[in-house]
Design a protein around this nucleic acid. Structure first.
Lengths: 232, 232
DNA sequence: CCCCCACTGACAGAAAGAGGCAGCATGGCC
DNA sequence: GGCCATGCTGCCTCTTTCTGTCAGTGGGGG
């Protein structure tokens, strides 16, 4: 990795030395011929660095002022934008606004140049399908239970219309375009079940943690549903 | 910089794919022989990456905690995850892998506790609708033209089946679940048009920039399509 | 025991890197 | 205008590195 290393040092030199710096000087510092230095500069430019070279003067690096905590490619930015857009069709309002907030924060940390590029993305997805009825119960309770690995007790109307009360270990919400479902381990049936959220009448936390069982739960679920692998 | 680039992709893959990942898989993904993959892993390790390799299982990446922290709420992380998932149903492969890479990088920079929480999100969206046929032409050319505000010349089969050749100013791709469309200003018709990407026979850049006209273009488009406002 | 897999060494061909030289274009200075 | 310093490019060569193939070792799990 001698080359990559040298390129790093070259960037450091451009930052450290007072601009403009001549190619000769940089070539000496990096221990390379002038010809090669021109090639290295070209490489850095290809990588996105803004290096201004002026005949008779030297090189000037214009650094991105708020250097990004993480850099994303243009394609990645557009992909995230579109993804958040697509989410709008299946997510609930909480989720949607969270996604937009997060994306806005990501874009805000980008350097000005990339930020402008993000604005250029005019693309969006249409397909405003049928609106899904908003869930009657508070999704945030379910989410918290999933995150904190806490047992829930629910009153549920099963597909036959019969009401049951059962303790469950919630694993995660499953969003589909038409129904919102809760994947959980049902302690009443001693097996994995998928509950329609809209059929949950009431729910409350029992205060019991199922953390010790979670790992084996996920593993079992993955084993039984290899066709639908659990994203880890 | 093919090598450095490949190493970057390798890191992304290690972040994105569920651990442990076998060398064979990584070799395929990076388009390199197994022997070379072992060498690449060695390079990353020499560079400080913590990659655990276990015989019979595969590789597991344990992220470097010395990364700039950028905090997101739990809900935001889940929202982004789901958004990227939802994108899988409408985006093309390039876009999808970009979204996954970006998300993996975001999660990688989270503090360990949040990172674990992100893994807890088992939720995903189903609704595997009908697969859209992959576009015959290279989308990256279109994307580049949109970003760089460069004119394109396309051979297009219009809805009546008549072939036309026209110069256009591409504004952005529009993803919908069933068709992929290109929004552009058509210089032949002197108006905005939405082209079905699958009806574009050939395309090439004319080398002309339409940057000076872009701002007014977007403004006009917004004015004429108030019902479908252009995301700025 | 077997299979899968991480890992290492050796070797040869392929690819990239790097230096040297010549030449062009541009901006500043006398 | 003449001169010089400097950025930039093309071409040729040599060297270095990279990479695939082949072979072999050892660990883990069924």
């Amino acid at each position: 990795m001698a080359r990559t290393d040298r390129l790093m040092r070259l960037m450091d030199l451009l930052r450290r030395l007072p601009a403009p710096v001549t190619a000769t000087r940089l070539a000496e510092e990096t221990g390379v011929s002038r010809r090669q230095l021109y090639r290295d500069i070209a490489t850095l430019r290809a990588g996105g660095a803004l290096i201004d070279g002026e005949a008779g003067l030297g090189y000037t690096l214009t650094e991105d002022p708020a250097l990004p905590p993480q850099s994303f490619s243009r394609l990645e930015i557009e992909a995230l934008r579109l993804a958040v857009d697509a989410l709008g069709r299946i997510g609930d309002p909480d989720l949607n606004s969270a996604a937009h907030d997060a994306l806005a924060r990501i874009i805000a940390t980008l350097p000005e140049r990339q930020s402008r590029q993000a604005l250029h993305a005019v693309m969006r997805s249409f397909d405003t399908g049928p609106e899904r009825a908003p869930p009657r119960i508070d999704l945030s309770v379910i989410r918290s239970a999933c995150w904190d690995e806490m047992e829930l007790e629910i009153d549920y109307i099963d597909l036959k219309g019969a009401p049951t009360r059962r303790p469950i270990w919630p694993l995660g919400l499953s969003y589909s375009q038409h129904t919102l479902m809760l994947l959980a381990y049902c302690r009443l049936r001693m097996d994995f079940r998928v509950f329609h959220v809209n059929r949950i009448e009431t729910l409350r936390s029992t205060g019991n943690s199922f953390r010790p069982h979670r790992v084996v739960l996920v593993r079992e679920y993955a084993a039984t549903r290899k066709a639908h692998p659990v994203r880890a």
